[in-house]
Measured scan of single mutants.
Amino acid sequence: TFELKGKVGKVVKIAEDHYLVEVEGDKWIAYSDEKLSLGDRVMVVDVDGLKLKVKRIP
């Protein structure tokens, strides 16, 4: 999972307290300090167990 840091993915689902992002064909639970929208491109900035911390990228 640490090899996911720096990888780019996209938001595929928005849940009440987390996001579902697809990175390299796999779906992961993710969270972010900013509000994300469906389809946003994101970069993995940290890995916390099986959850990814992501940030939006242009």
Rank of each mutant, 00 (worst) to 15 (best):
V44F: 15
W28C: 02
R41Y: 07
G9K: 00
L4P: 14
G6E: 02
E22N: 04
L50N: 08
V23L: 05
L36E: 02
V8P: 10
T1N: 15
I57V: 14
V8S: 13
D17W: 08
G39R: 04
L4F: 01
V11Q: 00
G6L: 01
F2N: 15
L4W: 02
V11T: 14
E16G: 12
R41S: 08
G39T: 15
K51N: 07
I57K: 06
R41W: 10
V23K: 00
V8A: 05
I29G: 08
G39D: 13
V8G: 09
H18Q: 09
G25Q: 11
V21Y: 01
L50F: 13
S32R: 14
M43Q: 08
E34I: 07
V45Y: 03
V54N: 00
E34P: 07
L4Y: 01
V45E: 14
K13H: 10
D40L: 10
V42N: 01
V12P: 00
E34C: 06
R56M: 14
E34Q: 10
S37R: 05
Y19V: 06
I29M: 07
S32D: 13
D33K: 06
K13Y: 09
D26V: 10
V54F: 01
K10I: 12
P58V: 13
V47H: 04
R56Q: 06
W28N: 02
R41L: 02
L4N: 01
V42R: 00
L52F: 03
G9H: 00
D26C: 05
E3V: 02
D46W: 03
E16H: 11
V11L: 14
D17M: 08
L50G: 10
V23G: 01
K55F: 08
D48V: 04
E34S: 07
M43N: 09
I57F: 10
L52D: 00
F2I: 09
V23Q: 01
K51P: 04
K5D: 13
K53V: 05
D40Q: 09
V11Y: 01
K53Q: 11
L38C: 07
K10M: 12
K5L: 10
V44K: 00
D40V: 10
V54W: 02
E22V: 06
Y19K: 05
S32L: 08
I29R: 11
K27E: 04
Y31A: 10
V42G: 02
F2R: 05
D48G: 04
K7A: 02
A30D: 00
V8D: 07
S32E: 07
D40G: 11
K13I: 12
L20H: 15
L50D: 12
L52G: 01
M43F: 09
L38H: 12
E24Q: 06
K5R: 03
S32H: 12
E3I: 01
S37Y: 09
E22F: 03
H18D: 11
Y19L: 10
L36W: 03
R41K: 09
K10S: 12
V44Q: 01
K13V: 09
K27W: 10
P58C: 04
E22C: 04
D40C: 03
V12I: 12
S37E: 13
K55H: 09
D33G: 09
D40P: 00
A15E: 12
D17C: 05
D26E: 12
K7R: 06
K27H: 06
E24H: 04
P58T: 12
A15R: 09
D48A: 09
K53C: 04
W28M: 05
V47P: 04
V8Q: 13
D26R: 10
Y19C: 04
D40I: 08
T1P: 14
L20V: 09
D26P: 15
D26T: 09
T1C: 06
H18C: 03
G49R: 07
F2V: 13
V45I: 09
G9S: 03
F2C: 10
I14H: 13
K53W: 06
L50K: 07
V8L: 05
S37Q: 14
G39Q: 09
D48Y: 10
D40N: 07
I57Q: 07
K10L: 15
V47R: 07
A30P: 00
E22M: 02
K53M: 12
V23S: 01
G25S: 11
T1Q: 11
I57T: 15
G9P: 00
K7I: 01
R41D: 14
A15P: 12
L38D: 13
E22H: 05
I29Q: 08
G39Y: 08
L36T: 03
Y31F: 11
G25T: 13
E34N: 09
S37P: 15
V12Y: 10
P58N: 08
A30S: 04
L20K: 11
E16F: 14
K5N: 15
G49N: 15
L50Y: 13
G39A: 08
V44L: 02
Y19N: 12
D40A: 05
V21F: 07
V54M: 02
F2S: 13
V12C: 03
R56P: 13
K7G: 02
D17R: 14
K13R: 05
K7P: 00
L4A: 02
W28K: 03
D48L: 10
L36P: 07
V23I: 13
E34K: 05
R56C: 05
E3P: 14
K51T: 08
I57N: 11
K51A: 05
I29H: 08
V23A: 04
K51E: 06
D26Y: 14
V8I: 11
R41Q: 09
P58I: 08
K53F: 09
E22Q: 14
K7E: 03
W28Y: 08
A15I: 09
D48W: 06
K5E: 14
T1F: 08
L52E: 00
E24T: 10
V42Q: 00
E3R: 01
A15Y: 14
S32K: 14
V45F: 11
K27Q: 08
V47Y: 07
L20T: 07
D17L: 12
H18E: 15
G25I: 11
W28A: 02
V45L: 11
M43H: 05
V44R: 00
T1H: 15
V45D: 13
S32M: 15
D46V: 04
K13P: 02
V54T: 04
Y19R: 03
T1S: 14
L20G: 13
V45S: 11
L20F: 12
D17G: 09
